[in-house]
């Protein structure tokens, strides 16, 4: 039996999540031994045609061409893993969904007619069936390695759905919001990063997107107690996971208040 094959695809994104693969260092060579890296243009000129066992997809869908391209990826792949906030929620570029995107084009480009862009930035799952979603801006390379390892071993990857607060407790970081008076999105943000921001004396800014159950009303109350304007909370929710349903609904509800 041949080795499983791995393909890496890029859509609208910063390259950071696929770079996490190259950041696996020694373990990258172990992966390269365990699988055929069949398509990974950022790292290799070699290309093998599909079908592929696993496709890792980075980035969001923002152009008509990319909407076609992602369907072709699905057809050639046994398993599709969406990696990172762009692929799972549309990324920061989904801020265009709230705005007049023609105006966005005019702000950046002098000759807007050259730009062929959709009015929205949408996650991969809006276009095709996705088997696994890996959150984060960027993804955690430990989670990425776990997912690749799990798929190779034929088991389900172990991804948390609880909030960052649990990771603060596990890391022994005292609550930056209750004890430090710093605004934090940790109570409504999915764990996975290892509570990096609170460990560096700042509030979580939500790059892993909404946790499974969120109580935004309670969080908004807490932020107001700290003397923070609602506009600041709306902006915080409208950042790297602005279009994630729970964050989008929450920011709209607070704005309507």
């Amino acid at each position: 039996m041949g080795k499983p094959s791995l393909a890496v695809w890029k859509f609208a994104s910063c390259d950071g999540c696929q770079l996490s693969l190259l950041d696996l260092e020694d373990r990258l060579l172990d992966i390269a031994e365990a699988v055929d890296i069949a398509h990974f243009p950022e790292a290799s000129t070699a290309h093998a045609d599909g079908p592929y066992t696993v496709s890792l997809v980075e980035g969001s869908i923002t152009t008509p061409r990319d909407a076609d391209r992602i369907r072709a990826v699905r057809h050639q792949s046994e398993l599709v893993v969406a990696i990172g906030a762009c692929a799972t929620a549309g990324g920061i570029q989904a801020l265009r969904n709230l705005a007049d995107s023609d105006e966005f084009v005019r702000t950046v480009y002098a000759t807007p007619t050259y730009i062929d862009s959709l009015a929205t930035s949408t996650p991969i799952s809006d276009h095709i069936e996705v088997d696994i979603e890996l959150r984060g801006c960027p993804v955690s390379k430990i989670q990425l390695l776990d997912v690749v390892g799990a798929l190779l071993a034929g088991r389900k990857p172990d991804l948390p759905t609880y909030p960052v607060c649990i990771e603060c407790k596990a890391r022994g970081v005292s609550c930056v919001m209750v004890a430090g008076g710093i605004a934090c999105l940790g109570p409504i943000t999915q764990a996975g990063c290892g509570a990096i921001c609170p460990a560096y004396d700042r509030g979580c800014y939500g790059c892993f997107g909404p946790a499974e159950t969120v109580n935004v009303a309670s969080l908004a109350w807490q932020w107001r107690e700290l003397g923070i304007e609602d506009e600041a909370l709306v902006r915080s929710l409208r950042t790297f996971n602005t279009a994630a349903p729970a964050f989008a609904a929450a920011s709209a509800a607070i704005e309507d208040r």
Partner: peptide, 21 residues
């Protein structure tokens, strides 16, 4: 590469957010 319009959506953000964005 798909355009991402950073200059456009920086408008309306707080100055402290520019490094993270």
């Amino acid at each position: 590469e798909s355009p991402r319009f950073f200059e456009a959506f920086l408008r309306g953000r707080e100055y402290t957010e520019a490094p993270d964005i």
